[in-house]
Simulated scan of single mutants.
Amino acid sequence: MFILSLTYVKSTEEADKHMEPHMAWVKEGYAKGWFLASGRKVPRTGGVLLAIGERAAIEAYVAADPFTIHGVAEYDITELAVTTTVKGLEILKR
């Protein structure tokens, strides 16, 4: 599993200009079966996505995020070897 933590490097106003294409990118990540959960950081300094899949594919996909392309946010990708979950979240062990 991967934790994709994005941090805005431009203003939230600039992020808002690219939010619609970014959200389309997020929805496509869900459609591909890679994204499991996502949301904004509080306070709003970026966001976090939980993802599964192959690291190279995830990294390439992150590079195609409109936020990345337009320099709005930078990503930190952390790989997590999940060993224990509550019932129903076994998919995280992939």
Rank of each mutant, 00 (worst) to 15 (best):
D16F: 06
R94Y: 09
T85W: 11
H22G: 10
T84P: 04
G33V: 10
V26D: 09
G47S: 03
V26K: 10
R55N: 05
V62L: 13
L80M: 13
T84S: 11
V82G: 01
E14C: 12
L36I: 08
L49W: 02
I91S: 03
A31G: 02
T83D: 05
A51R: 06
M23E: 10
L89E: 02
S11R: 08
I58M: 06
V26M: 11
H70S: 07
R55T: 00
L6Q: 07
P21H: 06
I77Q: 14
G39D: 05
G46P: 08
P21Q: 07
V48C: 10
Y61M: 13
L49G: 01
L6N: 08
K27N: 11
T83L: 10
K87G: 04
L50Y: 06
V9G: 06
G47M: 07
G71A: 11
G29F: 09
P66K: 10
I58T: 02
A63C: 03
E28S: 13
T84D: 06
A31P: 00
V86F: 05
L50R: 14
T78F: 10
E14K: 15
A31T: 12
T12H: 08
T7K: 15
V86Y: 06
S38I: 03
H18V: 07
E14I: 12
L36T: 00
F35M: 14
L50D: 00
K87W: 03
T68C: 09
L89I: 06
E74H: 05
G39V: 07
A15K: 13
D65E: 01
Y30I: 03
M23G: 11
V82Q: 03
I69F: 00
E79P: 02
Y8M: 15
D65G: 02
T45I: 07
E20G: 10
T84Y: 13
T7Q: 13
K32L: 14
A73W: 01
I91G: 00
L50S: 04
I91P: 00
V48Q: 08
A24D: 10
P43L: 05
V26P: 00
I3L: 15
T84G: 01
R94F: 08
W34Y: 14
L4M: 07
L92A: 15
K93I: 06
